[in-house]
Every structure is written in C-alpha cells, then in structure tokens.
Design a binder for these strands. Structure first.
Length: 230
DNA sequence: GACCAGGCACATC
DNA sequence: GATGTGCATGGT
C-alpha cells in the first residue's frame, strides 16, 4: 500500500535561485531592517528569552520596565531577586519560568565567560551553540537568535514566521524539523551573518505585514516565485 | 470570551 | 521518537 507523501520543493530542487530572488524582492520592498530591535547585545539576549511564545509588544513592555529600573545589565540582573525580576517581566507572560530562564543564562554567562557577552564571540560557533543549548530554557530558536543577533555568528534563525513563509513557498512541508529547515537556508545562501540577519528580519516583517492582514497566499508577492518553480 | 502571539521542558506512551 | 500539557500576559 502506498502512503501519501507530502512533497516539498526542498526534496528535489535547487533552492538557491528562489531563495535569492525572495531575498532581493523583500529587500526591495522593505529595505534594511536594522535588526534586532535592541540597544545592546545583552538586550537582544533578554528579548530573545522573553519573546518565547509571546507577542513582541508584550516583550517591549517588560524590557521598558527593566530599563526604567536601570536593570538591563548582566551583573545587576544577576543580583536581582527572582521574584522582583518576575514581577518586572510580567507583561511578557510566563513570567516565573522566564525569570528562571534569564537567571539560568546569567549563571552560564558568569560561570563561563566572566559575565561578558563579548568573550563568547571568541568561541567557535559549533561549540558555542552546544553550550547555549545546554542551558535549561534555551531551545534552538532562542539559541540561534542569541548567536546571530547578539553575537554576530552566521546561523539562520528558524521561527514561526520563517516556517510560515517556507511552507507557503513549498520550501518545506508542515511539521518539518528545525534542523532540516535551517539547513535549507544555510546550504543555499552565502554563509554570512549579515545576510542571515537581514533575510530573517525581512521574512518576519513580510509575514507580520502581509501574511497576517492578508492570509490569502495567492495574492502575496512571493506566490509568483512559487509558481515559477512548478 | 475565544483566539493568537517570534518556545521550551517534562511526562507519558 | 512522537505527542500532550503547563507555563500567562495583552491585543483583537
């Protein structure tokens, strides 16, 4: 008996041209995104943890609270009482668990890198990614966001937005693994943190502005790209 | 009031 | 390995 097989372009096509065209199309529409929206690498890390399964506007409220109390520094935050931290990040949701996750990251940072994010940059990507993934509460997306946006490492971030567009373009099939989708982007694009940064930011912008207000994929500017592949 | 939004860990099968 | 569940707020 033959079982139905979900087909995606990634199985049998060279995706380099389509990925590059999509990039150039989105860049032409939206221009440089200047991501991540933060004033420091440490703010990126905090934002990456707080945005887990949460609307970014809620994260901004939490970060504003921390900034208002002048707490957005590794040592200050590490010394802060967990209950107080949880209360300040309350608007971002899951505040108890996220307070714990922030503390876990800070423990890691002080234990291994003297509390300095800049020292992490000297560690090779593969090793660093493994280390960060070892922190309880940091999964693949959060780790990669930190690596790319806080540390400038060339790694492609896969999130709900990336996945949504990739599925729309038939670059991947629904339910595909994080590593597999990440490999599609990383194998078909130049290994350059600036490109991975801009590309991911453009996908998020496009997904937020177009896909949300107009979920009809047929009318999306990227739909033509999919059509040309078939 | 229901649903959604840039996850993750843990328990269970 | 795959699936289900708890964690929680604020906007629409």
């Amino acid at each position: 008996m033959n079982l139905p097989v979900k087909k995606s372009l990634s199985c049998n096509n060279n995706l380099k041209p389509i990925l590059l065209r999509v990039y150039s199309l989105l860049y032409k529409i939206y221009g440089p995104r200047h991501w991540w929206p933060a004033n420091s690498s440490f703010e990126v890390v905090v934002g990456a943890i707080l945005t887990q399964n949460t609307n970014w506007s809620n994260v901004e409220k939490a970060i504003t609270n921390l900034k208002g109390e002048k707490l957005l520094r590794p040592l200050t935050l590490r010394n802060l009482n967990s209950k107080r931290l949880a209360a300040l990040i309350r608007p971002s949701g899951y505040y108890n668990i996220k307070a714990k996750r922030l503390k876990n990251f800070l423990d890691f940072l002080f234990l291994n890198y003297d509390g300095k994010l800049s020292r992490m940059r000297h560690t090779p990507l593969k090793t660093l990614r493994k280390e960060i993934l070892g922190i309880n509460g940091i999964g693949q997306e959060t780790a990669d966001s930190i690596l790319l946006y806080a540390l400038g490492k060339p790694v492609f971030v896969i999130d709900a937005y990336t996945r949504r567009i990739a599925e729309c373009l038939c670059i991947t099939c629904a339910g595909s693994k994080y590593d597999d989708l990440q490999a599609v982007f990383m194998k078909n694009l130049p290994c350059d943190a600036r490109i991975f940064n801009e590309y991911h930011a453009l996908l998020v912008t496009h997904s937020k502005t177009v896909c949300k207000t107009r979920p009809d994929c047929e009318k999306c500017i990227l739909h033509k790209e999919k059509g040309e592949r078939r």
